Simulated assay, not measured.
Amino acid sequence: MAEKFLSKVYTVSGVDETRAIYDDWSASYEAEIGENGYATPGRIAAALAGLIADKSRPLLDYGCGTGLGGLALRLQGFSVIDGMDLSPEMLEQARAKHLYRHLAIVAGDAPPPVDPGTYGAIAAVGVIGSGAAPVSVLAQLLDCLAPGGLLAFSFNDHTLEDPSYAAVVDGWLRSGAAVERFREHGPHLPGIGLGANVYVIEKT
């Protein structure tokens, strides 16, 4: 019987611990979250599809994991998708799906090696929050976008319990650094009763 990780992942901290648990989880990840109805990749892909007319423009799936976000984006018509993740084992699962133009390992504590304007949009599906990347990664991703670029991401209910995450986003909106294009609470992992906010913000 495969080891279960959902009960553990929201308590990890730090880059090394996060990388290790996702490496260990890579082979059984899709089965475990699939049986719990993982909804966020489809929700983020649909939100972006409603805002982007040219789906041939390159898009970055940051924290792509095994490629479920890439699959959801493909199903919405996006044709040029790159992926980055800190887990080599997760990336091998993504590579086998043949969804991505390029795949790269990213250091969890360093900005992604992306020049502003390379991508018209960046998706971070289930990447920021408890058991995952710190909120500072959002600022790094926003810096990778040229004005007018879209950043799509999610905060699950565990993350929303910590007001510091939403405060960062609300601070950008108040200052005019970004404009909110979409925000909606809905299912994340309904099998364990967990929801998430999906956001799309536009860099100004």
Rank of each mutant, 00 (worst) to 15 (best):
K4F: 09
F5R: 01
S7M: 14
K8W: 12
Y10W: 02
V12A: 08
V12R: 02
D16H: 13
E17C: 02
E17Q: 03
T18K: 11
T18P: 03
A20Y: 07
A20L: 11
I21V: 02
I21F: 02
Y22D: 07
D23M: 10
D24E: 13
W25I: 09
A27N: 12
Y29F: 14
E30D: 15
A31I: 11
I33T: 00
I33Y: 06
E35K: 05
Y38E: 01
Y38F: 00
A39P: 11
P41Q: 10
I44H: 05
I44R: 00
I44T: 05
A47I: 12
A49M: 04
I52S: 08
I52A: 07
A53H: 10
D54Y: 10
K55F: 06
S56Q: 14
R57N: 05
L59Q: 08
L60G: 03
L60T: 07
L60M: 13
L60N: 08
C64M: 06
G65L: 12
G65C: 09
G65F: 15
T66A: 00
G70C: 09
L71Q: 13
L73C: 01
Q76D: 07
S79Y: 14
V80W: 14
D82S: 09
G83F: 02
G83H: 01
L86K: 05
S87E: 00
M90I: 00
L91T: 03
L91G: 01
E92M: 03
Q93L: 12
R95L: 12
A96T: 14
K97L: 01
Y100W: 13
Y100H: 00
R101Y: 10
A104E: 01
V106S: 10
V106Y: 06
G108T: 08
D109R: 08
A110H: 15
D115W: 14
D115V: 15
P116I: 04
P116K: 14
T118Q: 15
Y119A: 06
I122M: 04
A123L: 11
A123S: 05
V127Y: 03
V127S: 04
G129E: 08
S130A: 14
S130V: 15
G131I: 02
A132H: 10
A132L: 11
A133Q: 07
P134I: 09
V135D: 06
A139C: 06
Q140D: 11
L141E: 07
C144N: 05
C144I: 08
A146V: 12
P147I: 15
G148N: 01
G148V: 05
G149A: 01
G149F: 01
L151D: 11
A152L: 11
A152T: 08
A152D: 01
F155L: 07
N156I: 02
D157S: 10
L160P: 04
E161T: 13
D162H: 14
P163D: 13
Y165C: 03
A166V: 15
A166K: 14
V168I: 15
V169N: 02
V169G: 04
D170C: 05
D170A: 11
G171P: 08
L173A: 04
L173C: 00
L173I: 03
R174H: 15
S175T: 15
G176A: 07
G176S: 09
F182H: 03
F182V: 03
E184Q: 03
H185V: 11
G186I: 09
H188R: 04
L189A: 04
P190Q: 06
I192F: 10
G193C: 09
L194W: 10
L194P: 10
G195H: 01
Y199I: 00
V200D: 00
V200M: 01
E202P: 06
E202G: 02
K203F: 04
K203E: 02
T204I: 13
